[in-house]
Design a protein around this nucleic acid. Sequence first.
RNA 1: GCCCACGUAGCUCAGCAGGAUAGAGCAACGGUUUCCUAAACCGUAGGUCACAGGUUCGAAUCCUGUCGUGGGUACCA
Length: 542
Amino acid sequence: MKEYLYKIFNEAQNKLSYLNDVDITFSPPNQSDHGDQSTNMAMLLTKKLKKNPREIASEIIENLSIDKSVITKVEIAGPGFINFFFSAEYLANIIQKINDQNENFGRSDKYKNKKANIEFVSANPTGPLTVGHGRNAVIGDTVANLLEWIGYEVDREYYFNNAGRQMRVLGESVQLRYLELLGESIEFPEDYYQGEYIKEIAQHLINEYGESLKDEPDETKFKERAEKEIFDEIRSTLRSLNIEMQTFYNEHSLYEDGKIDMILKKFEEMGLSYKKDNAVWLKLTEIGNEQDKVIVKSTGEPTYRLPDIAYHTTKFDRGFDLIIDLFGSDHNATYPDVMAGLRALGYDTEKVKVLIHQFVTILDKGEVVKMSTRKANYITLDELVEAVGKDVVRYFFNMRSLTSHLNFDIDLAKKQSEENPVFYLQYAHARIASILKMTSEQNLSESYGDLELLNTPTEMNLMKKLHQFEEEVLYSGENYEPHRIANYLEDTAALFHKFYTECRILGTEEKLASARIALAMATQTVIKNGLTILGVSAPDRM
RNA sequence: GCCCACGUAGCUCAGCAGGAUAGAGCAACGGUUUCCUAAACCGUAGGUCACAGGUUCGAAUCCUGUCGUGGGUACCA
C-alpha cells in the first residue's frame, strides 16, 4: 500500500515543490474508519506555508493522480489528516504475490551485498549457559535472521577468553575437586566455582587418568579439560535452540598475532597513553570520556579494554559494513571506552551498533532467583529448554523489547504450555494446514480469478495485515527489534482465527471457496515465514 | 554521588519514526460446539500512561526535575 502512495507522491513532487520539504510518511490509523493509510504531512507544512492544514491537504489531493481501481476514496479528516481507502481488488492482489514468493515472501534485497557481523553470547567457558544467557542468545540469533531477511550476509560470532584469572580459578576448582574425590582433604574456597559440574569434570578425569594427575604442578591440565567439556556443552545448548555460530573468536589469538602490542604501540605513538603507578593508562579524557582508564595493569596484564579494542579493529579489518555487539545491561559501562579507543585509532564507529538488553529476572516459586555462575545458584538454559521446549524459549525471549526487563516465571513457563501465546500462532498455522488437507481431498484448490469476492471486513482486515509483513520485517531488521515480529504475528493469527470462525470454506460456493483457500494459503505462508525468523517451528498438526 | 535503562489495566507487556476515542495476552465475569481442530470465537468489566513542570496546533511518545525499580560506576569481564 505504501509503495503505491510513495509512487503517486513522487509524481506530485514535480507539481508541488513544497512536498520536497517534508517527510512523506504514511501509517495505518488506529481507527478503521480513518482509512487504510494516513498521512499528517499537511499539518507538518502549516508553519512553512502559513496556511490552514486542511487547505494544504486539499491542494495536495488535487495534485495526486490516483488510480480509482487502487484507491477508492481520499478524505481530509480531523485537523488535517489525509486518509486513503484502498480497494478490495488492490488488497487481494497481495495474495497471489505471497503465494508465488512463498517462503521468500517478506525478504528484501535492500542490503544486498552488505556484510554484517553480530557478536553475541560470548560467555567465557566457566560454566553452563544460564537462563540469563538465553535471552542474549535468542535475541542475537533472531536479529541475525532479520538481517539476513533484509539482504545482509551475516556472521554470527562468539568471542571468548580462555586465559586469565577466571579460567585459572576454574582450573583450580576442578583440581581441588579431583583431589577431593581421591580422598584427600581439601579446603574449597568460597569464591571458587561451586557447581556440581565441576565435580563431574573431575570425575571424568579420574575415569580417564586415575590418580596419575595427583601431582600435577599446576591447574593447566584441569583447566584445559574443563574448557573443553564446558564448551562442548555450550555448543550443544546453542544447537538445541537452533543457534549456529559461524565464528568462535579466541581473545588469546590477539596476543599471538601481535594485535595487542600493535594497538598499545599506536596509542603510545599518538600520545594517548601514559604510565602511572606502574600501569599504562589510556587518555580517555582527551577523546571525550570522563575518566582515564587503565589498559595494562601493573602486573603487565592488559585489562579487558585493550583486547576489546584490538578485537574490534579486526571486525573492521574483516570488512563488515555493520558490526553489532549484543550485551546485557551489566556491560553497559564497558563499551564507551572501547568505542572511544576505536575512534581515536581512526575507525568509523558509526558502523558499530551496540545493543543492550535488560536483565531477565527469574522467579521460581514466587521467589526472585539471584543468578551467579560461581555460586552455582542458577537455572541452566538446558534445564529450561527441557522443561518448556525450544519453541517456547525462543518465543518468550523474542516477544519483549530489548529495553524491557523481563520476568521469567519458571513455574508459569512450565505449566503455561496451554495458554502460551506461541501455541496460538502455531495453532493458526496447523489449522490452515488442516483445512488445506481437507479441501484438497475434496478436489478444491486455490484460485485467483475471483478474489474480489473476499469483501467482508474480516477478510479485508486479514489481507491488509498480510500487506504489512514486508515492511514489518524491514523495519524490525533496520531497528534490531525482533519483538515486533512476534507482535505482528499475534495480530495476524487473531485475524485469521476470526476469519476461520466467520468465513467457512467447505460447503461454500466454489468460486468463493477457492478465493478463500488462496487467502488461507497466503496467511499460512506469512505465519510460517514470521515464525521462521523467530526460530520457532510451524507445525502442520498439533 | 555520578552514568545507562525502565515505570502504561489486578499480573506480564505492546504502543514511544509526536497525531484522531491508549491496546493485547493472562486472570475475572457472561455467551458460542448437529458446522473445515473450542489450543478457537463473541461480549462485559478493568487506566490520573509514576509524579510535576516545559516544548507546540497536538505529548504515553520529545526536554527538565522529583520519586521508585534494575544494572553499572575496579589495575574483574
